[in-house]
Design a protein around this nucleic acid. Structure first.
Length: 563
RNA sequence: UGGGGCGUCGUCAAGCGGUAAGACACAGGAUUUUGGUUCCUGCAUUCGGAGGUUCGAAUCCUCCCGCCCCAGCCA
């Protein structure tokens, strides 16, 4: 597995690390970690964190662990763990043997809590959740001490052991850190560090009925793994005093990790809230976590995005502390930039219109050899048959074309890509008045040359031989949400774009695509980009996903008209 | 409302007292057998606002304004 060279800009974090290195704070080490909770699939927002953490480690010749932060059994599963492992690998990062689970630390975390109790810094509280909330105070008023706050160490130790042994009901007791009920940091008002929860854990089963809370588990897990820089998102800034509080009490100086926060990714027209993505999947608005409309890593993979493109995107957006709403156009730019270079070209007709070349010999077939890429001859060539009857894109003909339209219409000429210039002769309509067939003539001299008389033919359209083309299943997707920032809206489902419905249609591809390498990507000239996805293909059918959505609707995409 | 953060082009983002990088987007133009690509060109006299310090301020000070986060036994 290659470690990507493109890392996000991360100046302010680099400054911190450089400073720590200078003062020899962590004995010259740089150790980071990517710590997702396995309660969903990772998305483009996680990718930013992955690139940052692994990128920083690579930049400083340090290490980056993959840690599953599985301290709340509710909603966590092995399926999610496996998806995370797969997706981080796919993105191009390698943690070698540094795969960890917070759940592997349950015993050690328990011992840390015992130690904290012995220090007199934690106690067992008999208040239930409602009672705790009532006594927490609010932004302007301090909270009140729990009546159980001053139990003896021995009593606390005994109670905690009995919590672990399952003697108490769920929610009846907690272990709380004894800090300050009047702290302006709400999180410091005697936070719960252990709760009773009879929920089977996907890894530890029913071994435990008590589970550590994030604030307690995370910092200590970092310390246990020797993490030096624990990078998380901005909303944890308020938790940093608590992070430090635990670490200062339980971890020797010199081995204490530091938390650094950066702004999470927000993408226009995209929902990145895990809670909401789960809702989209569970309620069936999409076909699953890997639906090409999902902003998940696996969804983007099925849509034809490349790991390189995603990494470049993460590098391009930078890392800072400003709240942001990145224009999805930047993501699409990165995808285009990468695919433009590596995607072989092909022709395909989505909405066919039959064209008969009247002066082309009946039964004749020419096998043209086309370059797979206009700028990269090393990508080779392919054979494409040309014959008397072709299909062209319906939008490439207009009965009454506007001024700037330079494709086919009455009295017009157009070039068939890589082949001849053809001239319109007549059209055939059905009883409803719809054009169902065009008759044209071709100019045999124009195969690899401009018209001899110097006349200009501006339009170039794609085509496929009716007799030889292969039908394929095309899946067309538009963006899921219609407003720029659905992530900010409570009722985000009402902003589902009606045009985002999966469109299944038959397209007609050139025959060379029958042997297409499923899983690879093609750019369909004059159509935009499509990916070919192996996972969803059946038999010898081809499945195309639109990779880069153009701004407008599908109709405009095919016609490509400006304004 | 108390606290924690953040405010530089439409969107991101450099800048760290010496006179506003870059990217995307957008607008022109050139090349082009993809209306693609590529290639030029343009795009913040100004850094949330107002004062102040200084020869000099986006950078330092003061006040004000705006946005985000925190009152889960979620992470």
């Amino acid at each position: 597995m290659t470690q990507p060279t493109s890392v996000p800009r991360n100046d302010f974090i680099r400054d911190i690390i450089d400073d720590d290195l200078k003062t020899n704070k962590h004995a010259g080490r740089v150790a980071t970690r990517f710590p997702p909770e396995p309660n969903g699939y990772i998305h483009i927002g996680h990718a930013k964190s992955v690139c940052l953490n692994f990128g920083l480690a690579a930049q400083y010749q340090g290490t980056c662990n993959l840690r599953l932060d599985d301290t709340d059994p509710l909603g966590e599963s092995m399926e999610y763990v496996e998806s995370i492992i797969r997706d981080v690998h796919w993105l191009g990062f390698d943690w070698r043997d540094r795969l960890f689970y917070a759940s592997d630390y349950f015993e050690r975390l328990y011992q840390f809590a015992v130690e904290l109790i012995k220090l007199g810094d934690a106690y067992v509280c008999d208040l239930n959740a409602d009672e705790v909330r009532e006594r927490r105070g609010n932004f302007t008023e301090p909270g009140q001490d729990s009546p159980y706050r001053n139990r003896s160490v021995d009593e606390n130790l005994d109670l905690f052991a009995r919590m672990r042994a399952g003697e108490f009901e769920d929610g009846s007791h907690t272990v709380r850190a004894k800090i300050d009920m009047a702290s302006p940091f709400i999180v410091m008002r005697d936070p719960v560090i252990y709760r009773i929860k009879r929920e089977p854990h996907y890894r530890t089963g029913s071994d435990w009925v008590i589970y550590p809370m994030y604030d307690f588990a995370h910092c200590l897990s970092d310390a246990l793994e020797g993490i030096t820089h624990s990078i998380c998102t901005l909303e944890f800034e308020n938790n940093r005093p608590l992070y430090d509080w635990f670490v200062e009490r339980l971890i020797p100086a010199g081995k204490r990790p530091n938390q650094i926060e950066f702004a999470r990714l927000n993408l226009s027209y995209t929902v990145l809230s895990k809670r909401r993505l789960i809702e989209l999947v569970k309620k069936g608005y999409v076909n699953g976590w890997d639906d090409p409309r999902m902003p998940t890593v696996t969804g983007m993979r099925r849509r034809g995005y490349t790991p390189e493109a995603i990494r470049n995107f993460c590098a391009a957006i930078g890392v800072a502390k400003n709240d942001n709403l990145i224009d999805v156009a930047l993501l699409e730019h990165c995808v285009r930039e990468d695919l433009n270079e590596k995607a072989p070209r092909a022709m395909c007709v989505l909405n066919p219109l039959r064209v008969v070349i009247d002066n082309y010999p009946e039964g004749q077939v020419e096998a043209f050899e086309f370059a797979n890429h206009p700028q990269q001859p090393e990508m080779g060539t392919r054979q494409v048959p040309f014959s008397r009857v072709l299909y062209i894109e319906r939008d490439d003909f207009m009965e009454d074309p506007p001024k700037k339209y330079h494709r086919l219409g009455p009295g017009r000429e157009v070039r068939l890509r890589n082949a001849y210039v053809i001239k319109y002769e007549s059209m055939v309509k059905d009883e409803t008045g719809e054009v169902i067939e065009l008759h044209c003539t071709y100019d045999p001299q124009t195969r690899d040359a401009a018209p001899a008389d110097g006349r200009k033919v501006q339009g170039v359209i794609h085509w496929v031989s009716a007799e030889h083309c292969v039908p394929a299943e095309a899946r067309l997707y538009d963006r899921l949400f219609s407003i720029q920032d659905p992530g900010k809206e409570e009722e985000f489902l009402q902003f589902l774009n009606p045009d985002s419905l999966e469109i299944l249609t038959t397209c007609y591809a050139e025959p060379s695509l029958k042997d297409a390498d499923l899983g690879s990507r093609y750019q369909f000239e004059r159509l935009g980009y499509f990916g070919v996805d192996a996972k969803d293909s059946s038999g010898d059918k081809l499945v195309f996903n639109r990779i880069v959505p153009l701004r407008d609707s599908w109709g405009k995409l095919a016609s490509g008209e400006k304004k």
